[in-house]
Amino acid sequence: MGTIKHHLNDALLMAYSAGALPEAFDLVVATHISLCDECRARLEAFDTLGGVVLEACAEVSMSDTSLEATLALIAAQDTGSEIIAEPAKASTGIFPKPLQDYVGGDLDAVNWKALGGGVRQAVLPTTRDASVRLLHIPAGMKMPDHGHHGTELTLVLQGAFEDEDGYFARGDVEIADEDMNHTPVAAEGEDCICLAATDARLRFNRLLPRMAQPFMGI
């Protein structure tokens, strides 16, 4: 904590709070927040706004038996054993818990596919309005120039990369829009592992050159 320099923006945090993001983006946001208390506090401020909106909602009448039905539901869910939630433990490994839930474990559980040049990726299952993948880029490797369609979020989990926008290390997230062309280079030392989400699928019908495709495999 405390060393993260590149954060989520307000629009993404508000959209996550409102439940308006594609699942792929939700995963990157939830993973970043697991590593970043600053963005967690900003998110919870937007949640506070959600609570204020809820409180201001004009009431809609409940069905006559609503309370009884809810108490019955509570009784049915009550297994008899007192639910004492274990104090949450910080996840071990390099993947925060939301990401582990999608991978089915930590780094050693990833089902990598080679993309050539030592680069590997693993696409994670989400709804199809956007996609999210883990990328493994060998240390020191220069990635080809690539443009963007739509928005791309790239969160570093191990190692680092550098491009025109700065130096991105564990916990840092880069937000790239479609005007951006960048040339990321993985830092020397440790191989770079990132979680990258894009809603580029939504833009497929546009007649733009798809420079990203050969590299990203989107």
């Binding site: 939830a30 949450a88 818990k97």
Partner: peptide
């Protein structure tokens, strides 16, 4: 929306 909702890791609480 028929999608999963990934949530941030819980904070440790005492």
């Amino acid at each position: 929306r028929k999608q999963r909702r990934p949530e941030p890791e819980d904070l440790p609480w005492g």
